[in-house]
């Protein structure tokens, strides 16, 4: 059989992580925008805009972890050990955020400020350490081989370096932009105006972050430079930076329009997708950069195949359901109906 199960699984996990970013990015962003909107009723509105759609995000994260465990146990073991502290901080941030989200509505009036703070703190922590983890991962993970198999060779604080920190800030900016453009799409009046004036500087910051990562990674890693700047691969990848420029132009133009709707949000999502794809191109086919490929980290074909059967049956149903949910939800918006 010529089916490359490892490649299929790499694509599934790639999509799964992006699904997580799509589902969870903008509501983490809204958490980070909270400090700039002190009014309680405006905060209610902000949270209500995501209430119907933020669902499922944590299960996507659990599914991502489990799928990595099943399909690439070696990568799961090494990467998660290497990123121990940032991942633990991220998980704790998410626990806080998830609970705060729910209990803010259930809290008595004098308790609500506690959950506002938990929501802000959890969102900030989760977003920053997701970015730090991503940065440390892309930057490369030191591996040493031992009799029991390859093992993480670095220390507990290896992620505490300029590049991962910059990525942490970059992801915070990206999620804030998503949250901001989402609110432009979902709200009106004062709140929308404030978000419109916030979106432009955030967009420029995101462009700066993308440029910084695009310059930094090829300089730091000759393999990444070779991937992007030698023929014939270069021809394939030229569209990525071109599309980024197109995305930025679209985003800025849609922000300048009279009645901005979903345009800025979709343009932001597009930009983030391109940045994410760019990183994947730089890393491919490694799953523990820069040394272990997806094939070297793969679980036995009997494991990957067994898991694939269930995933291929259930995942489309879940995706279809999510699309349906968004579709109906969008229809409501056109009718001008609120959710609460």
């Amino acid at each position: 059989m010529g089916i490359d199960l490892s490649a299929i699984w790499a694509v599934i996990i790639f999509i799964g992580v992006f699904m997580y970013v799509v589902m969870d990015g903008f509501d983490l962003g809204i958490g980070m925008l909270y400090p700039f909107v002190p009014d309680r009723h405006e905060r209610d509105v902000m949270m209500n805009t995501v209430a119907p759609v933020w669902d499922g995000n944590e299960t996507w994260l659990v599914l991502g972890g489990a799928a990595l465990f099943a399909a690439f146990p070696r990568a799961y073991a090494i990467v998660l050990s290497a990123l121990y502290l940032p991942l633990i901080f991220m998980l704790l941030g998410l626990i806080f955020r998830g609970i705060a989200f729910e209990f803010r509505f259930k809290a008595l009036d004098h308790e609500r400020h506690i959950w506002d703070k938990a929501f802000i703190g959890g969102s900030l922590t989760a977003a920053f350490f997701q970015g730090v983890s991503l940065g440390a991962y892309v930057h490369g993970i030191a591996v040493v081989s031992t009799p029991a198999g390859p093992q993480y060779a670095g220390g507990a604080l290896d992620w505490l370096q300029p590049f991962p920190i910059m990525c942490g800030l970059g992801v915070m900016v990206a999620y804030s932009l998503l949250g901001c453009t989402w609110l432009i799409f979902r709200t009106e009046g004062e709140l929308q105006k404030r978000m419109l004036s916030t979106a432009r500087p955030l967009a420029l910051l995101l462009v700066l972050a993308i440029i910084a990562v695009s310059i930094w990674t090829p300089l730091a890693d000759p393999d990444v430079a070779a991937r992007w700047f030698t023929m014939p691969g270069m021809l394939w990848f030229v569209p990525v930076p071109v599309l980024v420029v197109v995305g930025v132009v679209l985003l800025l133009r849609s922000l300048a329009g009279d009645a901005p709707l979903h345009g800025p949000f979709l343009a932001s999502l597009g930009l983030i997708f391109l940045g994410y794809t760019g990183l994947a191109i730089s890393i491919w086919p490694n799953i523990v950069p820069p040394t272990i490929s997806i094939w070297a980290a793969a679980s036995p074909p009997a494991s990957q195949g067994f898991t694939l059967v269930g995933t291929l049956v259930i995942l489309p149903i879940i995706l279809g359901y999510s699309c349906f949910s968004y579709y109906v939800f969008r229809g409501k918006v056109k009718l001008g109906e609120g959710y609460h």
Binding site: G65, L68, F69, P73, R74, Y76, A77, I78, V79, L80, S81, L83, Y84, L87, I88, A148, G149, Q151, Y152
Partner: peptide
């Protein structure tokens, strides 16, 4: 993965 990497492998 974070705590039991050799078990996971």
């Amino acid at each position: 993965g974070t705590n039991w990497s050799f078990f996971s492998q």
